[in-house]
Simulated scan of single mutants.
Amino acid sequence: MRERPCPDCDVQMEQTNVTAEGVGDLYIETERDGGILDRLGVGYQTPLSACLCPECGLTRLYADLSE
């Protein structure tokens, strides 16, 4: 995962796991109709990564897009 600074604190966010009881990996569901997600290369199910700011606790989810 690439480095991501916290937009509020400007410190390096740390990779973390977000889980929901009874749920495995988190994904976004997308429709492939030529829209913005299709142009970004997002598939029908795209895995999500979570980052946590060690200073303020902000947590963000990022779609794992091919670089």
Rank of each mutant, 00 (worst) to 15 (best):
Q12M: 09
Y27H: 05
Y62T: 01
Q15M: 07
Q15N: 07
C51A: 05
G24S: 13
G24L: 13
C56M: 09
E21W: 13
D64K: 04
Q12E: 11
L48P: 02
L26H: 10
P47G: 14
E29S: 08
G57C: 01
R32Q: 15
V11I: 10
D25E: 12
G35A: 15
D8T: 14
E14L: 12
A20I: 04
A20C: 03
E14D: 03
C51H: 05
R32G: 15
E3Y: 08
I36A: 14
L40Y: 09
E29I: 11
V42C: 09
D8E: 12
C51I: 05
G35E: 14
R2K: 14
Y27D: 10
C51W: 01
L48K: 04
T16G: 08
R39Y: 07
V42A: 15
L58G: 01
R32Y: 10
G41R: 03
L40P: 04
Q45V: 07
R60I: 06
Q12A: 06
R4Y: 08
R32M: 12
Y44G: 12
V18Y: 00
T16C: 13
D25P: 11
C53R: 00
E21C: 06
D33H: 06
T46C: 12
R4I: 14
C6P: 01
G57E: 00
V18F: 00
L37M: 09
G24W: 06
Q15T: 09
G22K: 07
Q12L: 11
V11D: 13
R39N: 02
E14R: 07
N17Y: 08
E14P: 00
G43Q: 09
T59K: 01
V42N: 00
R2I: 05
T59M: 09
T16N: 02
C51F: 02
N17E: 15
L26M: 13
E21P: 11
Y62R: 02
E31R: 11
D10W: 02
T30A: 15
Y62M: 01
R2W: 02
R32F: 07
E67F: 12
M1C: 09
Y62D: 03
S49E: 11
C6S: 07
C51G: 02
V23G: 05
P7G: 09
D33S: 07
S66E: 14
D25K: 14
S49P: 00
D10F: 04
Y62P: 00
G22M: 10
Q45W: 15
L48N: 01
S66N: 13
V11P: 06
D10G: 03
I28K: 00
D64A: 10
G43S: 12
I36L: 14
S49T: 15
G35M: 14
D25V: 07
L65M: 08
T46W: 02
P54E: 06
G22F: 08
G57V: 00
L40A: 05
A50T: 07
L52Y: 03
G57W: 01
L58S: 06
T46R: 01
L52K: 03
E3T: 11
L26Y: 03
E55T: 15
T19K: 10
V23D: 10
L26S: 03
C51K: 02
D38F: 07
D25M: 09
C6T: 04
Y27G: 02
G24T: 04
C53S: 03
Y44N: 15
P7C: 08
